[in-house]
Amino acid sequence: MTTPRVAYALALGDDALVLAQRLGEWVARAPELEEDVALANIALDLLGQARTLLRYAGDLEGAGRDEDALAYWRDDRDFRNALLVELPNGDFAVTMARQLVFAAYQYELYDRLRASSDDTLAAVAGKAVKEVHYHRDHATQWVLRLGDGTDESRRRMVAGLATVWPYADELFQPDDATAALVADGVAVDPPTLREPWTSYVEGVLAEAGLELPEAAAPRSGGRRGLHTEHLGFLLAEMQHLHRSHPGATW
């Protein structure tokens, strides 16, 4: 049964899973070998978070689905990730813009979730907050260098931020599942993360000599299963092998 707590664990887990898949696409294609390794590391951190969160969601649901069943046998309408993480990688600047926006959000989220009254969520957050601190730092370093680099790198960084900016708002929107859990101290109320997130991201952009992107109509729907057309293609690639050969291991 999809209780609010199941839905909340799925939302956090799906954010991590889908972004891990996206970042994995950079492997062997990053600008440098060292960035291949860095992005793969970040992807694997996220995959570890996703595995724990989805396993927990499956246990709570009580329908016999483990983390693999949830990752490989749900269709896009059942995924609860925010739209931001399913956006195509674009060029390196788009990916770094997405990383900055998401890691800064996820850091504030996990930092507070450590105090959750749900022991499992608190434990996941306690471990993940250190990983995400590094993800945020990695993105920060690149946004500073691209924003304050050459004319071309700056142009791309500005374009990258403009691409992802409309999708940031969804991270801070309350949804029904979360609202039911906030009062019990299980979940973090998303709107409370907006101010510390804004403070951090604005600080990075100011140091990089970049202006805040112009406000655009916010895009949302992921938490309700209404995704962009990009998620279906991502899932097709991610789920193809498991669906063609159920239970395959190697």
């Binding site: 440098e32 070998l33 060292e34 390794v37 860095a38 590391n41 590094y134 730092d137 990695h138 370093q141 260098r145």
Partner: peptide, 20 residues
């Protein structure tokens, strides 16, 4: 050894390549 654009990134790359 590794490649990096500057010292700060070199430390981060070293963390990812050599201390995983």
């Amino acid at each position: 050894s590794l490649h990096a654009p500057d010292a700060a990134m070199a430390v981060r790359n070293a963390r990812d390549v050599y201390t995983r």
